[in-house]
Design a protein around this nucleic acid. Structure first.
Lengths: 123, 123
DNA sequence: TCTCTAGCTTGACAGACGTCAAAACAGGCT
DNA sequence: AGCCTGTTTTGACGTCTGTCAAGCTAGAGA
C-alpha cells in the first residue's frame, strides 16, 4: 500500500538489481531468488505461467482443462507459483482468477540480462 | 500427418522466441525450457552460475572453496548446469574451466521479457 | 435451508534431488 | 614408474516433489 514507509527488508531490492552476469550473487540473495527459478523449473508450471502471463488474468476453470492432470495437482502448482511470488490470485464469486506479478517477472528478467561483455557486439 | 522432411527440430529455435508473457507455451517447448529454469532453481547453482557468468571463465578450483560443500557436490551441481546447456567446461592441464553459454542465457532472458502490455507505460 | 459446482487441503506414495564418502580418472612432477 | 593434486563418478542416505483420491470450504441458486 504505502510505499513511503517501507517496512522490514525490501526483498525486491535485495533480489532485483545486478544482472547475474555482472556480479556474483551472495548466498542470501541466492536463497531469495532461487525459489522463483525453481517454480518455473517444472513444465506444467511453466505452461501455467505462460498462460497466465499472456492475458490480463486467467480463471482456474480455464487453466485446468488445458492439462491432463487432476484439479488438485493444478491447484498445487498454482500454489507453488503463488508462494514464489510470481502470481497473485483473487476469488471473484464462483471463480478464482490468477494474474502475474510483473515486478517479479521483471526481476528475473533483469537477472538474466547479458550486459554486452559476453556479447560479440563490436570487435 | 507424417512430417517427412522435418529436419530434426531446432531446439534452440523452438525454445527461444516468444516471451512467456506473449503467447502460451506448448508442452513440448515447456519440456525443453523447464530444465534450464530448474537448474537455476537451487541457491548453490544460482551462485555458481553468477560466479561463472561474471567473468570470462572460472576454474573449478576457485568455485569449490566459495562454498561449504564437498568437491563432489559442487561437481554435481556443475554437471546439472552443464546438462541444462547453461555452461560449458573445458579441461586445460590440471584444471577444469567453466564458462557460460550466452545463447542459453539470452534465451531465458528473452522468455522473461515483459512486452509493455503489463508495464505501466510511464508514470 | 439444502444442493451443486469450483477450487483448495490433506494424506499417501513413488520417484527425483542434494549431499557426502569412497573410489576412479586425468595430468603434472619427481 | 610412482606419487600427488584436482575433478568426476559411484553408491548410499534422508529429504523434497509431483501426483492422485478423498475430503473440505466458498459461493450461487433453488
Amino acid at each position: 500500500m504505502s510505499k513511503q514507509s517501507l517496512p522490514v527488508v525490501d526483498l525486491q531490492a535485495v533480489a532485483c538489481c545486478a544482472p547475474l552476469a555482472v556480479r556474483p550473487m551472495d548466498a542470501e540473495q541466492a536463497m531469495v531468488v532461487a525459489p522463483m527459478f525453481k517454480a518455473l523449473g517444472d513444465p506444467v508450471r511453466l505452461r501455467l505461467m505462460s498462460m497466465i502471463a499472456s492475458v490480463p488474468e486467467m480463471c482456474v476453470c480455464d487453466l485446468t482443462p488445458a492439462f491432463d492432470l487432476s484439479g488438485p495437482t493444478i491447484s498445487h502448482h498454482l500454489k507453488v507459483l503463488r508462494e514464489a511470488g510470481l502470481v497473485d490470485s483473487e476469488r471473484r464469486g464462483t471463480w478464482v482468477w490468477y494474474r502475474v506479478k510483473p515486478e517479479a517477472f521483471r526481476q528475473l528478467g533483469a537477472l538474466l540480462d547479458l550486459p554486452a561483455t559476453t556479447a560479440p557486439a563490436d570487435a
